[in-house]
Design a protein around this nucleic acid. Sequence first.
DNA 1: CTTATATATCCGCATAGGCGGATATGTCAA
DNA 2: TTGACATATCCGCCTATGCGGATATATAAG
Lengths: 115, 115
Amino acid sequence: MNNTVKLFKALSEEVRLRILGLLMHGELCVCDLMAVLDLPQSTISRHLSYLANAGWLAGERRGVWMYYRFIVNGGTLQQDQLAVLTKHLPQLPAVVRDRQRLEQYMRTKQQTACG
Amino acid sequence: MNNTVKLFKALSEEVRLRILGLLMHGELCVCDLMAVLDLPQSTISRHLSYLANAGWLAGERRGVWMYYRFIVNGGTLQQDQLAVLTKHLPQLPAVVRDRQRLEQYMRTKQQTACG
DNA sequence: CTTATATATCCGCATAGGCGGATATGTCAA
DNA sequence: TTGACATATCCGCCTATGCGGATATATAAG
């Protein structure tokens, strides 16, 4: 029950849903998310920790960067819930906007940012 | 986005999940839930309002009693999410226990309580 | 070792929201 | 209208949690 509540609590915050919406398309590091969401590093990092702790994300350090991606084998509830997110998150207007910003950002990433 | 967050926020609390777990089996009134969950009336009523406001439940007054039940046509996200709940909530130990208490309560309802 | 960069954590502050007793509202019966 | 009961809302209290600047930690380069 506690874990179930935790899973849902993680989904009940706008910034976290936007982060998940961006990670649908593949892993990203903290600095990517800072750039796209235009939020302070501590805010991004805190939400990522929260999502990882709730069982949604796994982080992997690669050099100086921490890359976060979805866990795809986190129990049947998590998997079924992930399917719902996969279907519906990309349709939310805020997520669509974020994704456009992500594409724009990726085009200029080599010159300006991490990675 | 706000509505989506609202939908998930409603799921991110233990008492509310337990209420939803009980309502899976059909509508119930406030006094039923008070008896089964053994919680004060104000607590039950507040959570029911929260769930109704979030788009999960509809309340119907029938005489002095308010009966609450799931909304089954609340948008595709709500429907898909409801399917996940229908599959997984009944498996949670706390929900199993509540349901046993509900059955016990229903057997003696005529003599002791509302309805 | 020092520096630079990326990330995590700490801190104080502000708000959201849970709790349950008390009170208000609504409904029915007499 | 009054009384009884079910439900909704109010209230003060308390905890959880979001925020973002400041600081600590980790890694790589020189």
